[in-house]
Design a protein around this nucleic acid. Sequence first.
DNA 1: TGGTGGCTGGAAACCGGTTCCCGATCGAAG
DNA 2: CTTCGATCGGGAACCGGTTTCCAGCCACCA
Lengths: 340, 340
Amino acid sequence: MARPGPRSDRTAGPTTIGDVAAAAGVSRATVSRVMNGRTTVDPEIADRVRAAAERLAYRPSTLARSLSIGRTETVALVVPDLGNPMFQSILHGVTAAAAADGYRVLVADTQERPEEEAEILAEARRRCDAVLVVSPRAPDDELAALLPALAPAVLVNRESAGTASVCVDYAAGTAAVLDHLVAAGHTALVYLAGPGGSAPDTWRRAALDAARSRHPDLSVTVLDAGGTVDDGHRSAARVLATGATAAVCFNDLVALGLLAGLREAGADVPGAVGVVGFDDIELARYAVPALTTVAVPHAELGRQAWARLRAAVAGADAPETLWLETRLRERASTGPVPAP
Amino acid sequence: MARPGPRSDRTAGPTTIGDVAAAAGVSRATVSRVMNGRTTVDPEIADRVRAAAERLAYRPSTLARSLSIGRTETVALVVPDLGNPMFQSILHGVTAAAAADGYRVLVADTQERPEEEAEILAEARRRCDAVLVVSPRAPDDELAALLPALAPAVLVNRESAGTASVCVDYAAGTAAVLDHLVAAGHTALVYLAGPGGSAPDTWRRAALDAARSRHPDLSVTVLDAGGTVDDGHRSAARVLATGATAAVCFNDLVALGLLAGLREAGADVPGAVGVVGFDDIELARYAVPALTTVAVPHAELGRQAWARLRAAVAGADAPETLWLETRLRERASTGPVPAP
DNA sequence: TGGTGGCTGGAAACCGGTTCCCGATCGAAG
DNA sequence: CTTCGATCGGGAACCGGTTTCCAGCCACCA
């Protein structure tokens, strides 16, 4: 009798391929062929197998199938913090795109604990066909050392030789913001910097430097803030103390927190201080005043990340980094610099 | 030689237990015992095995291990829409709680397509040890028919005989909101109803009816809105047309949309109309005016859902439904009814 | 010195699928 | 009527682990 035969005596678990084979009077191999739509099976037998499968409510074990064919049809997404709307929208996008191709997404967050990041990534990768790594804190060299073991992998907002990347062109976005503010007459700005060492923050800082050389009379004070609403809220006093006429924030969460802090401090936005964010999360347009921000194409990011994951799983070489363009959304939180 | 022996000729995949066994000169069984910390192995041999495993960078295949022991140490979370912050925070909570016990979370959304819900649930369940089902649209009887095949499963904001549930006591929250508004002098209210047929919406409506009998002079107009920011935004004119002095919204997204719509229409909040939401998403307190809402203990919900999942996986019977208490957060979007 | 009992570790079955290989069967061609 | 080739489907190996069962070894005791 075939090995995982009909479990007559055993405690009844879910029906296996052996049960179906026995019920249809064929071998397990034939059941497998029928279930996978191989055409080399006599239609009459195929019908019998399908009937038996139906009657026994047979569902092939995903696990056994994955082990056998060497694919799980699952990808992992590892993010630093699932509480951040930016990462949530990446999750949303990639989940939708992957689902369209029959793939599932396993999600893990590193809870901002860089020391466990390597282990979490490796573990997540082992359960899946590929892993999507979103902007981890790990230093470049550590990441580079880690990636070969994770392949196939795709990076978001990060680059490393030999691994595909999808990045948002925050530098261009930052340049657009600064040019916009300068054109409106602002010369004294504040940049509320994000978590230290993250690539997107580094790109923004580089764009700041470039802008300073483009506009010699532009002064930008960099304040370390962080990436949360509270970080922005807490920074209001420091922003006002600089005397800047506009604040560029690491992301929309920080910007929304800053708006709240400025309102509590009695500072008019944009009358006294303009505020700009990054990401264009859904609520940016409902803030008061509506937040000027740099829109990131979230859905497109998810789609493209999935496309690269799919290609990587199929064994394709890492293509060039895709740089997604941002768009400045001018809303009510910025305006011309007030007359002195 | 042991079966999955050292793959000398084959294309080199990741190292298997057979490779380690061969390198250490022991059987696969012994490697397995060492890797799982069985103490019945001679320390000298154990060291040799560990050294070989280390040298070959051996990582046991999660897949094979799961198939063998019959556990995946993964749970599925199925939600109607990953774009909704409420579901995102449940994901966040349950992911954190599960990770603390070494479990991973697979996420799927049904994209609000009820007809595929059954298949998505079944498929997600098959890959995992259990499934957390968040408030699906499926009618009660369909859900009840589905659940036995999904067990172990846990429901959120939904009940069904024989399955554990974690529910938010929206009825009590609604009652608290209505009593609060009545005490402030409001007698003409609007309820912006959520997606039809969802259990939480039904509970809120039941609480409305109860409040109407408690307060005979209270009138509540029910308007079908939906569950998104846009739905709230679009409803502003209809809310004003009713002449109500306060609007109770299905959730915070609708409330925030309504706030924006009312502002555009020139209606003062709370001067002309009060607005109340549900869920207390992070940005509710940063809205202008800050949103009065019914706070749901998101983190607690995630923790408790995980606790029940864990118990269900361990084979425990479904405990009684846990009803999580809400708390009314009075902020600036509601106030006393204006003098006529 | 032989019997008994406790440990240790290897062989093999098992989890539930997929797929290679090959024998049997059948139709068609010579 | 035989032979050849194509087709169908069963047996068995395989994916990479875990676990049961048992043989072999050693110590201890009569």
